[in-house]
């Protein structure tokens, strides 16, 4: 057997192994994080977006199925669940501040969630998207497992909803700082809450890495808006749209 054949066999073998894809995923993330820090933490240089592009580039270039990649990287994906549960701790540590702002949290939660849904609806109408696609877009402001569940319930297409939801998270994480600086909101609890409300987990991950208080309020909005949106979307569809 020649060396080249040997190498090819190793390559074929590696593709089926979690070890390879875990290394690639963490490596790509470290590159993204490095570039992010190099850019003086410019939010447009989002480490998640960079690592996604690097890995997608590899998969497309070598013609590898996403399923094969995901099968290897699913250990990282699995940790999303425990990480979500773990968000209870920072919220608990700030429970006094949460109680103090309970009224603004409740009002912003309800009105903000309605904003998110109606703005999506009217924008989609303006862009002349078809009805099933609009339904698939409506729950995009809440975390992917919830948005997919809602989408299924209201006859959207869950896989499309997943794509739109994750994209929303990345867009929110990348643009939030600019938008919030532009409208001069300095209140960290308001900044964080708005990020979690509009761009769920990926937004929260970013808020966490920048400011503890903002991160906590983002996590709070992520959990609460998930509950609220899953209740109000079916109601809106039944009675209004």
């Amino acid at each position: 057997m020649t060396n080249l054949e040997n190498l090819y066999e190793i390559w074929v073998y590696l593709q089926t192994e979690p070890l390879f894809w875990l290394t690639i995923t963490i490596g790509a993330y470290l590159i993204g994080d490095f570039l992010y820090k190099k850019s003086n933490i410019n939010p447009l240089v989002n480490p998640v977006a960079i690592s996604i592009l690097i890995i997608s580039g590899i998969l497309i270039f070598f013609n590898i199925d996403y399923e094969r990649y995901f099968n290897g990287a699913k250990f990282i994906h699995f940790l999303l669940g425990p990480a979500t549960v773990a968000l209870a701790i920072p919220i608990y540590n700030q429970i006094k501040l949460v109680k103090k702002e309970a009224l603004s949290i409740t009002i912003t939660l309800i009105i903000g969630s309605l904003f998110a849904i109606f703005i999506t609806y009217y924008l989609a109408k303006i862009f002349k998207l078809d009805d099933q696609l609009i339904l698939s877009m409506l729950p995009r402001s809440v975390t992917a497992p919830i948005s997919m569940g809602i989408s299924e319930l209201i006859n959207g297409i869950p896989s499309i909803t997943a794509i739109i939801t994750i994209t929303t998270g990345i867009v929110g994480a990348s643009l939030a700082t600019f938008v919030l600086d532009f409208i001069k909101v300095r209140d960290m609890t308001a900044r964080g809450f708005a990020i979690g409300l509009s761009s769920h987990g990926i937004g929260t991950a970013r808020a966490m890495s920048r400011n503890k208080t903002a991160g906590i309020f983002s996590a709070l909005a992520l959990a609460l808006s998930g509950v609220v949106v899953s209740i109000i979307i079916p109601i809106i569809i039944k009675f209004i749209l």
């Binding site: 995923t25 993330y29 890995i55 990287a73 773990a86 998270g169 970013r206 991160g215």
Partner: peptide, 18 residues
């Protein structure tokens, strides 16, 4: 865990591009 929260979204994010 929460300090590496962003990393955990990478595998599903790759799915979006693909």
């Amino acid at each position: 865990i929460t300090s590496y929260l962003s990393l955990l979204f990478v595998p599903i994010g790759v799915g979006v591009v693909m």
